[in-house]
């Protein structure tokens, strides 16, 4: 009896501790990937964003703080991308077309940010915008002014872009919703424009 307890108790505590660790490490068995984790994390706790200096397709300088008071939809891109960014651009276009026209600009703006500022100058950004029908005002295409500030910006959003051996990047593409308080509030799949629009409409 005593021997059984001596064997059983450590086993039980290890199993409990192990389960607790896995529970903790997967947010209660709901997020097994870093991508799922960042999406849940911003839903539970909207994240403040760094006021990194940005430059748009016309060379105008601004920060995310300039959008305070409005909702802001953000996608991260690089203009040479022709695979996943194509769907991203199309999704953004859909987004642009499905919100009430009156709300555009006043209540909601769209922003595409390039994580390849070395290659993507205003000219490339402008060309990207034209390709997807961005108007350059309510939907701007931008890049960080200083490449050194890019890592902080990407880290705040949880975006990881890695070179793909073909001269391009692979990145966790998604659409990001920043609230009126300048906090990152929601991250959605690029093929989930409809629920994203619904979330925006709720907040208009």
């Amino acid at each position: 009896m005593k021997a059984t307890r001596r064997r059983f108790l450590p086993l039980l505590s290890i199993a409990l501790l192990g389960t607790a660790t896995l529970w903790w490490g997967s947010d209660g068995f709901t997020a097994f990937t870093a991508e799922a984790a960042r999406r849940q994390s911003v839903l539970a706790e909207p994240r403040p964003l760094p006021m990194v200096g940005l430059e748009d397709q016309d060379g105008r300088r601004f920060t995310l703080g300039d959008y305070a008071g409005r909702l802001l939809a953000i996608e991260f891109i690089y203009t040479q991308c022709n695979s996943i960014c194509y769907s991203l651009g199309t999704t953004f276009r859909q987004l642009h077309d499905s919100v009430p026209t009156a709300a555009l600009g006043r209540d909601l703006a769209l922003l595409s940010i390039s994580f390849d500022p070395q290659h993507d100058g205003p000219e490339q950004l402008r060309e990207y915008g034209q390709r997807f029908g961005a108007d350059g005002a309510n939907w701007r295409i931008a890049r960080p002014l200083a490449a050194a500030e890019l890592p902080a910006l990407l880290a705040a959003f949880g975006v990881v872009a890695i070179p793909d051996r073909l001269g391009g990047f692979e990145h966790n593409a998604a659409i990001h919703l920043v609230g009126r308080d300048n906090r990152l509030r929601q991250i959605s799949d690029i093929d989930a424009a409809a629920p994203f629009v619904a979330a925006i409409r709720e907040q208009l």
Partner: peptide, 17 residues
Amino acid sequence: FGGPLACLTAATFASAY
């Protein structure tokens, strides 16, 4: 550790993580 079975359990959970 609490015996061989406890050892195996610890290794299983740690590797699962």
